[in-house]
Amino acid sequence: MNKRGLTAREIIITLLAIVGFVIVLFFVFAFNIEQRSQEEICRISVLKRGSVFESTQAYIPLQCTTKKICLSLGDKCDEQFLGEDSINEDVSSPTNEQSAKKIEKISAEEMYNCWSIMGEGKLNLFADKFEFNLKDISDFLKLEERAPKCVICSRIALSPELKKRTNVEKKDILDLVDVNNYLQTELVPGSTKTYINTFTDRQVNAFPAEVRAKFNQPDNQKKGTDEIAYIFTQLKTAEDPATAAMNGATIAGGFLFGGTYSLGMLGKAISHPIISGIVGTVAIGGTAGLRALGAYNDQQVSAGHCGTYTQVSEDKAKYGCSFVMPVDYNNVEFINNLCSGGIEGNP
């Protein structure tokens, strides 16, 4: 600085700083967040939260709005989505098989989107303080004082007309729906891997015969529902659940589970308390399939991932498990138990 005031260099630096700030503001407001799709907004907020220090995560809201999809035959889901914005997916087709395929496709895509948008279970997303006195349960689950928190990614409902389309003997539309089979045989859009291949990090290519047999066991014949919710849930553990389950051997990755069966890493790690706790919860409360009436194959698989979270580290690695589950939305008690740490996002 000379005696007359600021030097030319300082003036230029100050001006550049101001111009830079204005450019940043321009981008913030020019790309108005409201104009983006709900999924894009959610994905960005997940990435934002997953890329900051855990101590600041609570200040980054998850801007995820539950997607409401009405599966219909041209009518509306007024009972489930009255007063809410929903997407009407008309599944009418020349044959029942084609209609069932449409339902399977929508269900599989919603399950995958939920998993993908929420970071495939690899991001540490829920960091605010644990407030409930669940010491005993957390000890049992070896939680690091963190109850599971959830985001309800989407709700899929059956319209009144579609609800009527079940008749096991005549194989009506709902009787032909088999989302588990779709997950096994169809490729994730834009990928060369099937859904179950993707969920299990290439560990599982097909449901083994014994698992298929278990679909038909009485324990897995849950009553269907007219509204299913894909829920992402995440919890933290004091130790790496995958390593602990294998007595020190490091394995991590995705898995599929439902009722009394499990596939992938979980198949080996089922003895770990946190995993058996969650699987037990699912088996008891029951994930659900889209059926108006109870029938075999009603229970759809859930996907999970256990291991070390990828995040900005403050002191030590963070471990935990994440799951995406198809749950009966009408079973409020089950959902609140599953999400005992709270539900984030917009209804």
Binding site: V28, Y59, I60, P61, Q63, L82, G83, E84, N346, P347
Partner: peptide
Amino acid sequence: LISISTDNQEQKAAQTIIEKVEAKINL
């Protein structure tokens, strides 16, 4: 910016809830 974003989200959720309740009541 963070507080605007959080408040907006809560208000949006509140509006959604009251609209759902209103729709149910009106029927």
